[in-house]
Design a protein around this nucleic acid. Sequence first.
RNA 1: GGCCCGAUGGUCAAGUGGCUAAGACGCCGCCCUUUCACGGCAGAAUCGAGGGUUCGAUUCCCUCUCGGGCUACCA
Length: 492
Amino acid sequence: MTEKDIRVRYAPSPTGHLHIGNARTAIFNWLYTRHFNGTFVIRIEDTDTARNVEDGEKSQLDNLAWLGIDWDEGPDKPNSKYAPYRQSERNNQGIYQKYINELLEKGIAYKSYKTPEQLNVEREAQQAAKQAPHYIYEYEGLTNEERENKYQEYEAQGLKPVIRIHVSEDVVYKWDDIVKGKMEIASKEIGGDWVIQKADGMPTYNFAVVVDDHLMDITHVLRGDDHVSNTPKQIGVYNALGWDVPKFGHMTLIINTETGKKLSKRDESILQFIEQYKELGYLPEAMINFIGLLGWSPVGEDEIFTKEEFVNMFDPKRLSKAPAKFDAKKLQWVNNQWIRKSLDSVIPKLADELVKAGVATSGDYQNRTEWYKKMFEIAGVDGIAYTQEIVPLATYPFFKLPEMNNELREVVSSDVAKQLISDFAQQLTNLQDVSADNVMSIIRSLQTEQLRGRDLWNPLRVAITRAIQGPNLPEIVALMGKEWTLKNINDL
RNA sequence: GGCCCGAUGGUCAAGUGGCUAAGACGCCGCCCUUUCACGGCAGAAUCGAGGGUUCGAUUCCCUCUCGGGCUACCA
């Protein structure tokens, strides 16, 4: 018998935008698949109709694609052979019902008519008695026939059932976790019989996931730590249906630095969504780079990797067992590295930022690409964390002159300063070639024993840029040219 | 409360029964520079605690502490 082909899935719920935590799960599943030459599957888990968000699926997939993650099968790939890939559609085809019926017939599952209110009362009583909450089987000691009669009775009252699966009392579920190693959880810790089909006819997550992973021949399930406690339930279903259990791996969660809790969609204190980073001008390469290093580490000492490099060196054994905090500062650094590394492709984005901000007109960049390149360089693109940060840097003085204020006025108001500025303007007027070197020469020639350092530079800088600090002044003048510079000085 | 998982500088982390315990971000200082940024060079800072095992524990075992997860007709 040959080893089965590796098939791995990422299964988002379309409840909103792509969250950092989910993106991480997706990235590692993708890395795992591509490293081992497997097939990467995307499945949409939309069984909670109340939480589904319009366009949620599209947003998830778009953001995944933006990150540079590709998949072989999914709801948007028409010829995928395990279609459909949305659980709602699979439910409509009766896929889950078939196995629910099977379990019902085997007597492993049964109909339960307890209302949420009843369950609440039971739970609260258990908690008050310091017991672990667990489901109380309501047909204890009844024959099948008696149970059927009960069903009739409840139906007559107009009650809608859920289907629960019976959990054996003395089983220990074991698995060898890709990340955590040997795991075992006793069946009595599960909390009793649990729901596999909701009153609305939808399967629950823990059931649908097993059916789909089995039917889709999924071999490896890599997911967040928060699913550890679901694993025994799912193994129970595999056993009940007589199916092989896939290999599980539970990756640690990302912790919010501010709250110390797992990164949650409800957190306001940190940027949660890939979309937000995209908007600010983080590069997908940087996002993958940073996230790929959260909870996983390579062998060497390097920090900057392409996704291809990640694929090559990925090793599930190096997945960390300890939760990692999300350090936005390091992300900024990683993104800065990527901006500098891929400057050619970033420059048009920088120009876009200026257009979006209403600073530059669209098309301007195409007309004078070289000027823009030089301008971004002088403005300090080397120092930005994300592309949006270029806006204030480039706006002043290259697109707009800051307002004068008292502090600035004071710098240029003395007679000495006025004379200096006027001398500079004079020399600049006579200058043939306005290069940074030549401008520097002019400024040097204006330097005296008394007039040097800030006394020399600040008045000139204010006269030309209306600021007392900023990028290298001669470079600014060289870029602006003679006319523009002189106009600024005259407008003073 | 119960069950599960974890613990190396502020953060991400490598690593080992014996090493001065890597590296990166951040921070501090210095240099470069008219200034900011960039860059360069240094620096501070870590094995949670207590017991074992051992000639020797950061490393192996136990307990504690702390942190996290789960405890749904959510996924």
